[in-house]
Design a protein around this nucleic acid. Sequence first.
DNA 1: CGTATTTGACCTGCGC
DNA 2: GCGCAGGTCAAATACG
Length: 441
Amino acid sequence: MDMSPRPSSCKHDNSNTNSQDNQLESINAEMGEAREENERLKAFLAQMAKDYQSLQMHFLDIVQKEHPKKPAETSSTLEDVEEPELVSLSLGASAGRSRKEEEKRKTNEGLTLGLHYKIDGSSSSRSEPPSNLNPDGSFEEPQEEDTGEPWPPNKTIESSRNGEDVVLPQPPVKRARVSVRARCHAPTMNDGCQWRKYGQKTAKGNPCPRAYYRCTVAPACPVKKQVQRCAEDTSILITTYEGEHNHPLPMSAAAMASTTLAAASMAISGSSTSGPAFGSPVSSTTTSTANLHGFSLHPPNPSIHYSSPYHPTITIDLTAPSSTPHVNFSSNIIDSSSYSSTSLNSSSSASNTVPASWGDGSSSYGAQPCNKSHTGSLNLGRQTPDSFFQSYLRRATSPTPGGQHFLTDTIAKAIVSDPRFRSSLAAAISSHVGSRGAQES
DNA sequence: CGTATTTGACCTGCGC
DNA sequence: GCGCAGGTCAAATACG
């Protein structure tokens, strides 16, 4: 091609090419940075995976040492295991609870929840029967009148996806709740769903009233949320979700829902067990999501606490500084303050699912309260990985230790093939981004 | 006028 | 059994 046009056009072209070059350069630079960051994060992930595994091994060791005698009797072990640290790990177990409750539960649900970690197979004894304790497999359904939507624990449990050490369907825990702490000046967080307030009450110990909302996207949707400001810091909004939507959700809401559901699943399934991952079959999601390609989503040690025997609560703290993701055992909080967006750009599609902000609904993303289709900003700049997804990824890494490529592939596959993972990720990321944005602004 | 919110009453579960 | 606290209901009210 003859590229010798008139001076003017030439000039024009030059400026064009110059600017293109510049753009190219800057893009390259960005890519380079992204790549670097990517590597850093990968390394970080690998490290975390290692740590997690060693911790898990350690934990198993300890447990085995402590209960060598009754390898097969899990439920009885439950009673033995009353150390505070373990309490939160044995979901549905008796730890920390009164015998009375236990008995009650036993009678009601058929004994034993089985959720305590399947510690190398030994635990299975008691747990076998349990899972189905309820003839019809629904321990809570009766009341729930068929909204068709029991909370995850119920059926989800079909579980056991092939092979993994799925402990067992944990039956007993009735409803897990997911509590999200985030800085938010708006009355409630925007989670993409429609809510109707049906009550308000001042809870003991907190001058700020607690508001009760019900999902109104579908008439029979059982999902509820409670919103309350933190007594110590009123800029912190504590939103507690309970239940699972029984209707399709907008992307933004779906992301949020699946994230909370995932967290709830963790709560229900127990921290180091690879319990049934996501949610209940009932929801709009396909049952296959329970598998999530063989991963299960659970933080290294989700802090689950029992606010009530049937309500394990998992708390996700989005308010802490983002540089130090960690699990706070003592406070029962999963600090997922920083969601990494890292190298997930491979799934540009993920950006489409960016949901409403979990952060400050008013100020962060916030200008758009209902950012239903906020695209994209998967901000490549953020770095600190969050324990939530890391654990997810961890599962991916564990099978073939050391394979970063494997990890990457796995992530990519998961993103591509599982919308739920995608949306969860997007939710987490966007929420973090959103809340940070809010804080920065 | 229809819908959403407010708010006091009521119900239920838990601890003593 | 009683009292307390959390959660829900539903009539009254506000709002668009």
